[in-house]
């Protein structure tokens, strides 16, 4: 019991206020705040793993978190829900597609309505880029962007960073290749920003139709050839290829995509020895990643990423609550 009490104390010690009122993009973080969040998240990992005698945390007791998901996403909304519940918050998860949107309510109307119910944190996922930003201007509570269109998914970048730091100890100096549909990926945008901020070298690899032409101005090296791009990489982060992008529009076929840009053993061997594989999920097996690689726990961090997701989101929610404590709404 005393061990668990220590854990709860350590969590309280590590807790620092979030640098901003909202968490809308990776740019809301700075290096010291990021490190503090990672340290805090490490404690939450330990907490989450103590499945038998997990101490009750009351960091968000009495607080209300509303999960507002305009796009279907089981994994991200569950991850946020579990994170908030572990912190003692009351959680309402609203799959909005089924309710007000069907009745023609606009995003702002929904926001104003919810705001009147005085939640403490709004977690929003929306198919339109900039939706989280718009919402943050209309509500009094903290807003966490859980993915807005092809713009940003900052908690994904934070959990990826946490997974990487735990696998490599130090993220600075790592060479990370982000591969696949960069053009339509909010995960890529957030990761480019956060990884670069933390001193990693980021490369973007994909067919020219899926890598923005001016992506080199993001401070990344751009490659269209996996062999060239993976050479010297410590981490290979695969992105999900949306099926509607295939069948000729941007990529001729799934088999051609897999042949040239799908990660299998052969291509992974072009990266550095000991290179780790990541994927934000859900995976298209046999399209962007071979099961052989995805399921090999000696190289794949994919399951870690899911576990780190809860811890990283706990850190964000706890830290945001602390920041906004006593802020009049």
């Amino acid at each position: 019991m005393s061990q668990n009490a220590d854990l709860a104390d350590r969590i309280k010690e590590r807790l620092v206020p979030f640098p901003r009122r909202h968490f809308l993009s990776a740019g809301d973080l700075n290096p010291p705040a990021t490190l503090a969040l990672l340290d805090l998240a490490d404690e939450f990992v330990a907490h989450n793993r103590a499945t038998d005698e997990r101490p009750t945390l009351d960091l968000m007791a009495g607080r209300t978190v509303v999960n507002l998901f305009f796009e279907n996403s089981t994994r991200t909304s569950s991850s946020f829900e579990i994170a908030a519940k572990r912190l003692g918050a009351d959680v309402v998860t609203m799959p909005v597609t089924a309710s007000s949107v069907a009745k023609g309510e606009t995003l702002i109307d929904t926001a104003v309505t919810l705001n009147a119910m005085k939640p403490d944190v709004l977690v929003i996922r929306h198919s339109a880029s900039g939706a989280a930003d718009l919402l943050s201007q209309k509500v009094g509570c903290a807003v966490v962007n859980a993915g807005d269109g092809r713009h940003e998914h900052p908690t994904q970048a934070l959990l990826d960073l946490l997974s990487l730091r735990r696998a490599f100890d130090e993220v600075g100096g790592l060479t990370v290749a982000i591969c696949g549909d960069i053009a339509h990926s909010r995960v890529a945008r957030s990761n480019v920003a956060l990884l670069s901020m933390m001193g990693a070298r980021v490369r973007l690899i994909g067919p020219p139709t899926l890598v923005p032409g001016d992506a080199d101005r993001w401070g990344c090296e751009v490659f269209h050839d996996m062999r060239e791009g993976l050479d010297g990489c410590d981490v290979v982060m695969m992105l999900r290829l949306q099926l509607e992008r295939m069948a000729g529009a941007l990529v001729p076929s799934t088999r051609e995509y897999f042949r040239f840009w799908g990660l299998d053993r052969e291509k992974l061997a072009w990266a550095n020895p000991g290179a780790k594989v990541m994927h934000p999920g859900p995976m298209n097996r046999g399209v962007e990643i071979d099961s052989d690689v995805a399921d090999d726990l000696s190289v794949s961090l994919i399951q870690d990423q899911v576990e780190m997701g809860v811890a990283a989101r706990m850190a964000v929610l706890a830290s945001l609550s602390m920041r906004n404590e006593g802020v009049g709404r």
Partner: peptide, 18 residues
């Protein structure tokens, strides 16, 4: 260049090139 030369869907240029 396009599947069935339909002018709409890109053909397997990479695999054919190979």
């Amino acid at each position: 260049a396009t599947q069935g030369r339909d002018g709409q869907r890109m053909a397997e240029i990479g695999l054919m090139h190979e």
